[in-house]
Design a binder for these strands. Structure first.
Lengths: 206, 206
DNA sequence: GTCTATATAGGGATAGAC
DNA sequence: GTCTATCCCTATATAGAC
């Protein structure tokens, strides 16, 4: 007789994996429990057996997405690297992460916008952003005349925006500039190095 | 006797204005016809009287949003200004526009992502982006050694991202950095000038 | 644990009186 | 044109047999 706990875990994972796909693709309102069940090749009733409700299932998925999205930035930001290396690593690693998880940024941003209260307490208590070191490094560079004067948070937001935005705006790039799937892949690949150079060049004083 | 056509127009406008608010705030799936009716202080049945269906009403709202969002960029891009002036104008005007229409970018991006086909043909036929002149200007600057080598589209996307992203990520800035409403307003105001300087500095070679 | 059948609610849409 | 009542479908959720 096979241990039931193993099967249980497998079923749960299969459901969560399916839910992840559908929620990421359609958002909370757009997702259907039936579609998740189909994706998991499982009966719809089983969703409610393992996870009581759509809300609970969503919460599990959202948490994982948020926990994946933020730490990429945080770990690098808090490291001992110098500014140039941090920016280079940040852009490369972040874009690579989104290539593997293309729906995560749009999903997190949208759900956070739609229902800020639902997950705010969770994000706040689990994701502690401590950018002090990075911000200090920037400020020192400004004070020493190496960097142009810029609020560290402005720089930070610009870096993250540069990585995330192209993925959120992918349909726009397709419609307005005719970038197909392959073009987009090339565009993103090119972006890693060009953005690193552009942002570092923007930071350093002439 | 009052002319009926006037009242008709007033009712239609009241509905569209209410629909705009709700759709922008909740997206297509999240919006409720009842909520739109309440917002318009009108009976729910009247929505269907004036606009046949939720889809039709949404389409009207989406068109207006998209038609407002893109031309801001396009007009400046296609103008005869030089690169520095274009970038400065682009950032200032675009951010000012979003201050007045804070939900538009997230709305357009999300709906375009959720259902790319629904509006693609419309956007494609109504919004013609002709960035050739701007792109040529950039390329000339690169060839003459004035600018660093960067694909014009990469620059373009970065500029738009810098303007739009902070608004989409507003809840994140609130949660992670504790920016309240006033802080956010200051942040955006500061951003107009600092991003202009940062991006121009990034473009010019040392 | 897994399925079928069904309860229940919500929301888009319409019928019909006025 | 405007309202009430209601149709009807869809989607979440549960009951209950196996």
């Amino acid at each position: 007789m096979i241990n039931n706990s193993v099967l249980e875990t497998e079923a749960e994972n299969k459901i969560k994996e399916a839910a992840r796909k559908i929620f990421h693709r359609r958002g909370f309102d757009g997702a259907r429990m039936q579609e998740i069940a189909d994706e998991a090749q499982i009966n719809k009733a089983m969703l409610h057996y393992y996870f009581r409700s759509k809300d609970k299932l969503f919460e599990a998925v959202f948490k994982e997405a948020a926990m994946k999205l933020f730490p990429v930035v945080i770990l690098i930001i808090e490291s001992d690297l110098d500014v140039d290396e941090k920016i280079k690593k940040l852009i490369h690693n972040y874009i690579d992460f989104i290539i593997d998880n293309p729906y995560v940024p749009g999903f997190v941003l949208h759900e956070l916008t739609q229902n800020p209260e639902r997950m705010k307490h969770f994000v706040a208590s689990n994701v502690l952003m401590r950018p002090q070191k990075f911000f200090s490094q920037i400020q020192e560079g400004i004070d020493s005349g190496k960097y142009i004067p810029i609020a560290p948070l402005q720089l930070m937001v610009t870096i993250v925006a540069s990585c995330i935005f192209p993925f959120v705006a992918k349909p726009m790039l397709h419609t307005l500039f005719g970038l197909d799937q392959d073009d987009f892949g090339e565009f993103i690949e090119q972006r890693k190095e060009q953005m690193t150079q552009f942002i570092l060049n923007g930071l350093y004083k002439k």
